[in-house]
Amino acid sequence: MPMNSLEIFLTILIMAAGTAATRFVSFWLFPAHKKTPNVVIYLGKVLPYSVMGMLIVYCLKDVSILHWSHGLPEFIAIGATAALHLWKKNMMISISAGTILYMILIQFVFN
């Protein structure tokens, strides 16, 4: 290994501090006892809606349309999850059925 134990430990600490900073920074900038600017309140209300779309794209970032399996297992499994959720409105059913379908698709159908 190119690093000694101390350097490994320091690298982990830097990552830990950096990660914590990204989590806390908004709360430091806009503390609860001070009036939060209206534009930040607005962003706080609308960002959850935008972020969820971003997280879906993030999950699919490594899917390649051009190469086999062309994103088909993902497309089918997301379609099934969404359809089931619109129909039954039960989170656990939609998520488990969608995942089992996806696992079957990539392990047996598009393998």
Binding site: T11, M15, G18, T22, S26, I41, L43, L47, V51
Partner: peptide, 23 residues
Amino acid sequence: PVYTLVLTLMVNARHVFYGISML
């Protein structure tokens, strides 16, 4: 260490959005 810190902040930048959303 410097590269580690910069990469950490970039990879985790989305947390800033979460923070604003949860204020």
